[in-house]
Design a protein around this nucleic acid. Structure first.
Lengths: 229, 229
DNA sequence: GTCTATATACGGATAGAC
DNA sequence: GTCTATCCGTATATAGAC
């Protein structure tokens, strides 16, 4: 699989995304016309990610935000109860989408070597497709409400565990070198995160997403398919 | 070298650190008694790093800050002209210290294989010794003044280049597998950064700094001292 | 050198008109 | 559904007493 193949599978999901978000947050949202809500939620999410990724969520004033969305401050507050709740909504909905896509792509695969490569590629491709959200979630962890913070931590540990499990399985089958799976999983995650955290660097060097994925796969495989020292 | 060896070399530098900072910022600091300045600068730096690493530099109010330092707001403003200048001073002084120690330890080494291992270990040990500053610098990059931001980016690229140069040298000598040195250097940096960015995770797993350094060295060496596929 | 008290601006949030 | 006008708290920064 390469990035283009992946993109096609995710575009379908994105079509229904804002409708889902609307349905999941019906109680909070005071506006009732579905079409309006979907249009404005899309503006709200995009604007929040854009401004936050430039200067941070806290530094984004509601006046900045109002300007970027094209909605008045009064109108905005009929979509969420407070700025903090907007933050929680963004994180919650993004996390759900990410988790769903990850599971969809990784679960069906049997062979550990193929599964490891697929898990790496899907992570990178997904963080490319949803780069603003990934960066946002990474940088704003500090500002989250305790309950959201907890879920973000849990989600980080969960994806670590996906990799650790694949490695364990492959070691049991004799396909991978014996290494500490937890430690390896952490290392892999660090390499995956660099793609969306240091985007400016890779843009500057004109490194493409497929090129980066190839590199990480080789790097990781060299450690896990070589006799240990 | 292990972390304990490293610590002894850095403690000496730390003794003179605040005196240096005082001398470098004499023009800005209105207080003239050296002993007082050094004592208060130490409080100021530690408090700023502590609060910022909990909730971010912007979210740290001058009232919080005053409480943590034990100095009144009026007194604080005789050590820096504005909150933004405090941020710049913190970053500038930290960067200088980090660069100096890196160069000291890495430059004298000849053999590329030893040099690569040493560069990795020194980076990790240094980020352990100065963890609050490293985390701070990483997370606050967004809020920096344009000139500071530029210097932080330059510093990131500079340390990338240190690794790339070692790899190139080793490849020329036939000691390393041919790989893209820029790409490898970026990957190594990502692994090094995880140690101070995800400290909570390693603390939870009780992974020690020497254990982490051993892991990264093995991981990196597996990729660079194996026949390429 | 350090404090307390305060000037001044900007933040999030809401009420009520349209 | 959306807008404008405004409330009120809290932010940074400073002036002047000690």
């Amino acid at each position: 699989m390469n990035y283009q193949d992946f993109q096609q599978t995710i575009d379908i999901s994105k079509d229904h995304l804002y409708r889902e978000i609307y349905l999941a947050n019906r109680d909070q949202i005071q506006v009732k016309k579905e079409k309006t809500v979907i249009r404005n939620l899309s503006r709200i999410f995009n604007a929040a990610l854009k401004i936050s990724n430039e200067k941070g969520f806290q530094a984004m004033s509601m006046r900045d935000f109002s300007k970027e969305t094209g909605l008045s401050m009064g109108a905005l507050y009929s979509y969420f109860a407070s700025k903090d709740e907007l933050l929680d909504m963004l994180l919650r909905q993004g996390r759900q989408l990410v988790m769903r896509i990850l599971r969809q792509h990784i679960q069906p695969i049997g062979d550990p070597v193929v599964k490891l490569e697929t898990a790496i590629r899907i992570h990178i491709y997904l963080s490319e497709a949803l780069q603003p959200w990934f960066y946002f979630s990474f940088m704003e962890a500090k500002n989250m409400s305790p309950s959201e913070k907890e879920k973000t931590v849990a989600s980080e540990l969960y994806t670590d565990q996906i990799f650790a499990d694949i490695l364990l399985e492959g070691q049991a089958a004799g396909q991978f070198t014996p290494r500490d799976p937890q430690q390896s999983a952490g290392g892999i995650k660090a390499l995956l995160q660099d793609w969306y955290v240091k985007r400016w660097k890779y843009a500057k060097r004109k490194t493409g997403v497929d090129q980066y994925a190839d590199f990480i796969v080789e790097f990781v495989m060299a450690y896990h398919r070589t006799p240990s020292t």
